[in-house]
């Protein structure tokens, strides 16, 4: 099955599908290189020259796009680091250590898998207002850190590591933390990569929470900032500029994705979904 050649019809279907996937992106790319005036007259102009870099120049010059990009990077990176740290610690604790109420606590954490964001977002907004956390990076990052999935995932991963390793290390006189930090954690690297990439993507794409928590435009993330530009485009900088913003905003995440693509698939194959 694995090595079998693809039927020509299947190849055609795949190529067609790939075309459908790529056409919108190519269209966007073309639009971003057109002057806004030309597009105002006829958006079909995107299929022929002249093309220009003016929209990209405008982004670098006069808009908040760079600030939004930085905010998105900070929030997504903060969320990723936070989730990796908390989930690794908790995963190890649940998988390896004996303490009272361990099972109960683990079940409580698992129940979190079933809680959709919508069930908590409104009261959380009220809570964060009381705590004065809105419009801050911690306020934007904290909600990402409650994901039960990371803990569940890391617990499973730690459980799969043979216990003999622990025993050997403990006999050598290593502390629990040294054991965790020096011996076991390095073994979980593939899981960390997978969890990290998905946390990063989820935080990067989050829309509702930053929409209501970031109250000044210099704290907007890209999703929120672009939405405000997009819904105003009637009398604004124009289609070409918007599309250039979209392309510009996608570049960093595409780079991350391309850089980690092999990693993601390989790591998932090794760890996910048992």
């Amino acid at each position: 099955m694995k090595g079998a050649r693809l039927h020509p019809l299947v190849v055609m279907a795949l190529l067609l599908g790939a075309g459908v996937m790529l056409a919108p992106m190519v269209w966007t790319l073309l639009l971003s290189f057109k002057s806004n005036a030309a597009l105002m007259a006829d958006s079909g102009a995107a299929f022929s020259g002249p093309y220009t870099l003016e929209n990209y120049a405008a982004i670098l010059k006069g808009s908040l796009t760079l600030q939004w990009l930085a905010n998105s990077l900070i929030v997504a990176t903060g969320a990723t680091v936070g989730v990796l740290v908390l989930s690794s610690l908790a995963g190890y604790g649940f998988a390896r250590l004996e303490f009272p109420f361990r099972r109960t606590l683990f079940v409580i954490v698992l129940l979190g898998l079933a809680v959709p964001e919508q069930a908590v977002i409104l009261p959380r907004h009220q809570l964060f207002a009381m705590l004065g956390l809105h419009n801050s990076y911690p306020g934007l990052i904290l909600p990402s850190l409650t994901g039960s999935f990371g803990v569940f995932f890391m617990t499973q991963y730690f459980r799969a590591i043979p216990k003999e390793l622990d025993e050997a290390a403990l006999l050598d006189g290593a502390s629990r933390f040294t054991l965790f930090w020096k011996v076991l954690l390095p073994l979980t690297f593939p899981a960390q990569a997978t969890l990290g990439v998905f946390t990063f993507l989820a935080a990067w794409n989050d829309y509702w929470w930053p929409l209501i928590s970031a109250t000044t435009s210099d704290r907007f993330t890209l999703t929120v900032g672009l939405a405000s530009a997009q819904m105003n485009y009637a009398q604004t900088s124009g289609l070409g500029f918007l599309m250039a913003q979209a392309v510009f905003a996608s570049i960093p995440i595409l780079v991350v994705y391309i850089a980690f693509q092999k990693q993601i698939v390989r790591a998932m194959a090794g760890t996910a979904v048992r």
Binding site: V85, L86, S87, L89, A90, Y92, G93, F94, L97, E98, F99, P100, R102, L105, V109, G112, V115, A119, V120, I121, L122, P123, R124, Q126, L127, L142, P143, L145, T146, S148, V151, R176, F177, F180
Partner: peptide, 28 residues
């Protein structure tokens, strides 16, 4: 010591989990 270690490892997550998920859930 093992017990305390257990809480030390799962504590940070549980703290955030309780404050940012459980509390709003009940508030809701």
């Amino acid at each position: 010591r093992d017990r305390l270690a257990g809480y030390a490892f799962v504590g940070p997550f549980l703290l955030v989990y309780a404050a940012v998920l459980i509390v709003p859930l009940v508030m809701g």
